[in-house]
Write a protein that binds this DNA or RNA. Sequence first.
DNA 1: GAGTGGTCTAGACCACACT
DNA 2: GTGTGGTCTAGACCACTCC
Lengths: 259, 259
Amino acid sequence: MASVSPSSGASAADAPAAESGPAFSPLYQQIKALITRSLQSGEWKPGEAIPSEMDLAARFKVSQGTVRKAIDELATENLVVRRQGKGTFVATHAEQKIQYRFLRLMPDDEGAPRGTERRILECRRLRAPADVARVLELKSGDAAVQIRRLLLFAGKPVVLDDIWLPGAAFKGLTAERLAETRGPLYGLFETEFGVRMIRAEEKIRAVAADAATAQLLELPPHAPLLSVERLSFTYGDKPVELRRGLYNTESHYYRNELS
Amino acid sequence: MASVSPSSGASAADAPAAESGPAFSPLYQQIKALITRSLQSGEWKPGEAIPSEMDLAARFKVSQGTVRKAIDELATENLVVRRQGKGTFVATHAEQKIQYRFLRLMPDDEGAPRGTERRILECRRLRAPADVARVLELKSGDAAVQIRRLLLFAGKPVVLDDIWLPGAAFKGLTAERLAETRGPLYGLFETEFGVRMIRAEEKIRAVAADAATAQLLELPPHAPLLSVERLSFTYGDKPVELRRGLYNTESHYYRNELS
DNA sequence: GAGTGGTCTAGACCACACT
DNA sequence: GTGTGGTCTAGACCACTCC
């Protein structure tokens, strides 16, 4: 560590006298930030192993325990995955057993959704509407990609998604490219466009289906639907995806854990 | 620690040779379990401080660092709260700044719900219906308490809750007692009945309002509502409350964070 | 056996709160 | 000042994975 005396004690002691803004963070937080920056810059790619704790400790000139605490937090935030005896790996949405990491929909009977199928209805580039531009922090008039797709469980349509992406970061995303993709979209975004979703916020409401939606989901008009607006963020809390989903909750439910 | 050699190394080394079931846990997990048991037994009451890390280390004959790691996990699970310079305190729903710890409903404009009001519609004791008995793990025919109440934000009814509690644990819970209660119900449950909610699971759906519900929430019939079925657990993952809520999401939304 | 993460210990100093 | 939790270090051994 450059900005801090590595030998014993907390970092705050090394603060300039007349400090006003920055505020200090513990050494391990600074290490965490440095590791995060390397993740962000692509020094270690998703799925790859990062250097061992000993190596990182040597690199940053801190003890292994400090590196460990930094990595501990990154692991609880799902940015990296630890595997005893093997190493610490950059988390990835691709090559993942769980199909839909962010999808909380469960079938009534139990277990995870089975027999999932994806149907791309539309994929086009256009100028971002004002509301989309605002939440994605685009300038008005910037290009955006809109994807409409249907998710089917056991042959029945359950989710209608309307996905908005910043056009600049997703050049070359076409309906064909989507159609030939297996596995989660977030895996594609990662491997093809270098955009990794870190976390997301959802706003959930109950709405009545409009005529077009009802037909797509094979429901009567005005059927109650779960409206799930998801804003996904990548490194640095930068919003990179707006997803407006409508879920048929007749035989599925949205599962949440509170603690 | 009794069951384990405290001096250096993991506990697995101390396993009997022909072990079949139990499986071993690290020392700090065993300490965590012991502390949890003390919390459960009421040795330290909600709001009180638990012994210092040094004291606990001496009591369990382990190092302070091991106690620390145990408490760290209890803190992330919200069972205890650490306060630097003061001590570690048993978490409590009473004396809490946040009014509704488990309620994820937010007004559209922003911030937390303001001007909240609670209106008890009903509070009666009866035999638990089969479905309620099942999830609360009651024997069929066991007594239950049912509470129906309305939550109003800024004068407008937004949430209609139907709450089910095991009758045995909540003797003496009456409409009067509820009416005179300020603050969260979970605070009352804690101080009056010694039942502390630890975590909860929710199943969320979209439904159409029936006539009676629509009237109570001042909505047209068949208006779409968020149905939130919450099962709350106390120590030992014992279910102790079933709450069926109907939320009007016209000017509020259910907020969730994914990571 | 070598290398990795996982656990445990012991001791030091810092930041904060109360007295 | 005293006591609390918070951070940092250094060294030891354990468990798992791969060679």
